[in-house]
Amino acid sequence: MSATTSPAIHRVTTGLPFLWLIVFAALPLVLIVKISLAQMHLGVPPYTPLLGLDDAGENLWRGTLANYRLVAGDSLYLDAYLNSLRIAAISTALALMIGFPMAYAIARAPLGWRTPLLFLVLLPFWTSFLIRVYAWIGLLRPTGLINSTLLWLGLVTEPLKLLNTEFAVFIGMVFCYLPYMLLPLYARLEKLDASLIEAAMDLGATPTLAFWRITVPLAVPGVIAGCLLVFVPAVGEFVIPELLGGADVLMIGKVLWNEFFTNRDWPVSAAVAMLVLLALVVPIATAQVLMARKAGEAS
């Protein structure tokens, strides 16, 4: 913070984002915690209050951990959660395998080409997320473009089952989340000093070895950022598995949706949401603390 900034402006500029976080992140979170400790109740709101008065008029704590016990005890939730982790992990790995070469190629392209290429990567974002996912239904369904082309070419005799499979979910995930992987990788690779690669080759490394020993290690922060940006939303993703995965693909986002909208059990779905949040935040926060400590040691 520069010394010339007046304290009042400083307070406003740093205060506004905090206010935003309190209103739109912290408060809703508190509400969800509160709902997760309540019980289902037919009415509006569809859950019981945490504090109530007993017969004697005394304040009574009526919160319960029953929802958490239910979620922990029923293997459906655990299975859905583990399956979500698996699908998100595979999707992230696929996005990395596709995104890294793309980011590398764009970062190494002539200067005038980089902006148009990045623009092409971002172009799908200009249309609605839902429309993009629906478009894949059109491509993947038995009478869709892919199957009719394969049939016409005579490569298959009957339509392949592409839609309502995990494969379709992976396609949707990678397609929708690729830019989140690509942009941090590009930002990192674009800054990479080309003379480092030249120095490695000058010191006797083949171009392949220089890539693995210099380019890849220096891109690690971009890899971590990209993987987090894909993995975290992918775990809780609802639309893609719902539209492309069908009934066979069980993911925690769908379970949450069902509890909330079909069963109208807000407390249980709030408990599921809290557990997913904890399961994601704790390992990521730990990793960040470890990385910050490592960076602190280096400097």
Binding site: L196, E198, A199, A200, M201, I214
Partner: peptide, 16 residues
Amino acid sequence: PHVRPVNLMFQSYALF
């Protein structure tokens, strides 16, 4: 470059 028996010190030093 990797087979040539000469080495270049870069202006930026290019330390890893």
